[in-house]
């Protein structure tokens, strides 16, 4: 085994463990801050770790009506997909590990995999609640994937038009060339609109209130996850935690890829430390406003209302953003 490959494996393990740890910490923060905003004390910050440990030692029940292999496979697929995503999204201001082996389009597809895995797992569970949840998840995907795709692709297209010759759809290139500095006033407004669209898609992508429709606890008793327990449930839980980091990092990489080290004039290892801390803060800010505040400030929408919201206003906003970016390039 060559040294570079060994090195890459080590880095991969570090990224996986670190990303998971980070996701759990953000999840703990999410629960603590949401509780505080609701006037409660809330669980301790390390509660997600307790939860996962507890789920791991609990019995893994497969319902009698379930398609067992599909039911057991899907949590693994979900976790694998978000794990892979960690290799493609710039974390801590560094280049992604698999930089050059896949681009924004791949990220877009990988983001959809956990949802599809949940849908299949839900259908395989053979429970009416899980089936209703799975149908809802499918509809939700159809609703939010379109504005998400428009947002990501517009940014890639703009960069390819502005800087011909670079590997444009790569996330690391996008992160290295913040668009805010390249666009004119029209494009600036366009970027703002795309940013808004991405912020609204984030809670839907993560299935948080007001878009936790596929899991709606009071309506369909957890929906897709109604039948999952033990190890399988823990894997979905971890996948959810990691996905939060991925979505936060994606937003940061696309819109706020700036580091502090250059500004402070600190180079070398200390510069990296400052950048990593700054990155963690940026991801936290994104999660705070896109997930935590939103989930305590709204009631859950109905599936029809959510679809209408994404197809009309949100798609409209992202299309307008795309149009403005295009105009900015042409004019």
């Amino acid at each position: 085994m060559s040294a570079t490959l060994l090195n890459a494996v080590w880095q991969g393990i570090i990224i996986l463990v670190g990303g998971t740890f980070l996701g759990m910490v953000y999840k703990g923060l999410d629960r603590k801050l949401a509780a505080q905003m609701q006037g409660r004390i809330g669980p301790p910050l390390r509660q997600p770790f307790f939860d996962v440990v507890k789920l791991m030692v609990k019995e893994n029940i497969v319902p009698d009506h379930a398609v067992a292999w599909l039911y057991n496979l899907m949590p693994l697929v979900s976790l694998a997909a978000v794990g892979t995503l960690l290799f493609y999204v710039p974390l801590g201001g560094f280049e992604p590990l698999l930089h050059g082996y896949g681009d924004l389009i791949l990220v877009l597809y990988l983001l959809a995999v956990p949802s599809i895995a949940m849908v299949l797992g839900g259908f395989a569970a053979g429970s009416p609640f899980a089936s209703v949840g799975a149908q809802r998840e499918l509809v939700m995907m159809m609703a939010y994937e379109f504005p998400l795709a428009i947002t990501l692709l517009s940014l890639g297209w703009y960069l390819s038009a502005a800087m011909p010759g670079v590997h444009v759809f790569s996330l690391s290139v996008l992160a290295a060339n913040p668009l805010w500095g390249l666009v004119g006033p029209l494009g600036f407004i366009g970027l703002l609109l795309l940013f808004c669209a991405l912020m609204i898609v984030t809670p839907a992508e993560l299935a948080k209130i007001p878009f936790d429709i596929p899991e709606a606890e009071t309506e369909i008793a957890g929906g897709i996850l109604a039948e999952y327990s033990g190890r399988n449930m823990a894997m979905f839980y971890l996948a959810d935690a990691i996905k939060m980091v991925v979505m936060g990092s994606l937003t940061v990489a696309l819109f706020f890829p700036y580091g502090l080290s250059g500004l402070l004039g600190v180079a070398g290892a200390w510069g990296s430390v400052i950048d990593v801390i700054f990155y963690l803060v940026k991801v936290f800010v994104v999660i705070f406003f896109a997930v935590i505040v939103v989930r305590v400030a709204f009631a859950r929408l109905k599936i029809g209302q959510a679809v209408r919201l994404f197809w009309l206003p949100i798609t409209g906003i992202s299309l307008l953003g795309m149009l403005l970016l295009t105009l900015d390039r042409i004019v």
Binding site: M37, Q38, G39, R40, P210, A216, T218, F298, A299, R300
Partner: peptide, 13 residues
Amino acid sequence: GAHELGFDTLLHL
């Protein structure tokens, strides 16, 4: 009612 709507903040308030 607020909890049934998924609006737990209103429940706690």
